[in-house]
Amino acid sequence: MRAIDGAVADLKRLDLLATGDSVMHRLDARAKVLTTLVFIISVVSFGRYEFTALFPFFIYPVVAASLANLPGGYLIKKIAMVIPFAFVVGMLNPLFDRQPMAQLGPLAVSGGWISCASIIVRAVLTVGAAFILVGMTGFLSVCQALERLGTPKPFTVQLLFLYRYIFVLTEEGARASRARELRSCGRKGLGLSSFGSLIGHLLIRTWLRAERIHMAMLARGFTGEFHSGQLTRFGARELFFVLGWSALFVILRLENAASFMGRLLAGLLT
């Protein structure tokens, strides 16, 4: 059950980061959500064989994480965990795409390897941006931002309820599963029928809990409407933030800044 406990601990850690106070934390969540979207779209809009041009994009996650004072080591560890998956996905490219594309000294590099490397960098950038968004904004504010950007209320309310009870239910699930593990006398694995009753029990308890929550809501005068508490404002700072970063992303998208800098450096050296 270390898997469940680990996942919950991880969730809590990322969630706690969002309680920090920094320039980035204080920005209206809508600005951060929009900027993240522009960032991700810019990154994935590159062609399959683009590799070096992706690197200048690191400036956004790095600067955002630093300004938000997020722990770099933790983020890097968390992002690094997706690299193997990205590699597995990208690994197939070199098998199917053997056309040589570039020369690295005596080595001819095939298009497949370039696109594989590109997939990994894309994965790191997009995943990093998502983690950083949550770390500097918090799930609650992301939901609020989504709602104020036009997401239907039933869905945002659903997101909030889901998030609230993930903590309660994963703990309940971990307890049930631990109890089973302790009685299985070292036998590994959970058969289908005992899984069915374990999950079934959990489901019934969940259902009863939903009834109690509903009761608690009614007891406090719930009539079908949710009211939001304090809201932040989308001001000039936010506008500047979104436009500034978006402009940079567009420039970096149009101009391979890495190759430019490389040539610049080469020029300076010669």
């Binding site: 609230r164 608690a216 809501m217 406090r220 409407e225 939001s228």
Partner: peptide, 18 residues
């Protein structure tokens, strides 16, 4: 079961808003 809102403030404010 009773604290279903995202923050303590929202939770305590839930009833008064209603």
């Amino acid at each position: 079961d009773q604290l279903f809102m995202p923050t303590v403030f929202d939770d305590v404010a839930f009833g008064p808003f209603n």
